[in-house]
């Protein structure tokens, strides 16, 4: 290796001695190491000071808390073990809430994906209906991606009242932005030939997109949408916790009842865990099939 570098360098630089090259190389390495060292020091300093600040602003400190981490889980487990016979029945009781959470995730993924398809087609160069407005549609995606779901959900709960619809709208808006970005990356790799062919026979923009672009990109779209569905189940569970129905809401209630009802908490934990793992497995299986074939 050393010899090869020497040869290339000599042929490029012309006339430099090996010693010169070596000293130049060592200097560069030193400088690189120094930059790396500075970066590392800055990083460690940031982590340490961040830790101290976060620790100071937390109600219970880190070192006090770390000893109690397992208190609550062990309480839950102990109570669940005591009332082990109840748990399957409780899980059946919470099934409707779980279905609601899943429905919120599925409906918002569908609506969000449809919006994302439209937005991504409108913001991809070469495919856009109005090429001048691609920037506008991109910014729209950026903004809807940046808004956390909880913000829209809470505002909508104030207007529409509690229930699944605010959560669905909130997650759909975020999904439209997040998927839109991924979809437009997929669109950029789509071949324009079918689109041009359709255009030459007088197809409208909608026909060109549905017949020329969608068949090319559909497998990738589906695979991203499945991944998003997984993420959205988690989001929909969290939004339930702040008051929009589903299993998250039940979890919050079970918590506020406190000790003595932890078998319900355990039942919800198990239900949520199993759902997430199952969806994770199923979706990764189908995603591999969709994108692995070519």
């Amino acid at each position: 290796m050393q010899g090869m570098t020497d040869m290339t360098d000599v042929s490029l630089g012309g006339g430099g001695t090996t010693a010169d090259i070596q000293s130049a190389y060592m200097e560069m390495t030193h400088r690189k190491r120094m930059y790396g060292g500075i970066l590392l020091v800055v990083f460690v300093a940031l982590m340490a000071s961040g830790f101290v600040v976060a620790d100071g602003r937390n109600a219970g400190g880190f070192w006090n808390g770390i000893t109690n981490v397992f208190d609550f889980p062990s309480e839950v487990v102990a109570e669940a073990a005591e009332n082990g016979a109840n748990i399957p029945g409780l899980m059946v009781n919470y099934l409707p809430s779980l279905i609601e959470t899943l429905n919120i995730a599925a409906a918002s993924t569908l609506i969000g994906a449809l919006a994302a398809i439209l937005l991504s087609l409108l913001s991809t160069r070469g495919l856009a209906r109005w090429p001048r407005l691609t920037g506008l549609f991109r910014r729209m995606m950026d903004i809807s991606r940046a808004v956390p779901e909880i913000v829209i959900a809470l505002v909508l709960i104030f207007v529409l009242g509690g229930g699944p619809v605010p959560a669905m709208i909130a997650i759909a808006i975020h999904t439209a932005g997040a998927l839109g970005k991924l979809f437009s990356e997929v669109n950029e790799n789509a071949s324009l030939k079918p689109v041009e062919g359709l255009e030459s026979v007088g197809a409208t923009w909608g026909q060109r997109m549905v017949l020329g672009v969608i068949p090319q990109v559909a497998p990738n779209y589906l695979s991203y949408a499945l991944l998003r569905f997984e993420i959205n189940i988690r989001a929909s569970a969290i939004l339930g916790f702040v008051g929009s129905g589903g299993i998250g809401y039940d979890l919050k209630n079970a918590f506020s009842w406190g000790q003595g009802r932890y078998d319900e908490v355990a039942a919800i934990f198990i239900l949520l865990f199993l759902t997430i793992v199952a969806v994770d497995q199923i979706s990764s299986h189908y995603r591999n099939r969709l994108t692995g074939s070519h």
Partner: peptide, 22 residues
């Protein structure tokens, strides 16, 4: 990964109390 962030948040909040560290 399977235990949702929601559950981790709730469990850890019990031990560490509210705040950025949690």
């Amino acid at each position: 990964r399977g235990v949702d962030a929601l559950i981790w948040t709730v469990v850890l909040a019990r031990a560490f109390g509210p705040g950025p560290m949690t």
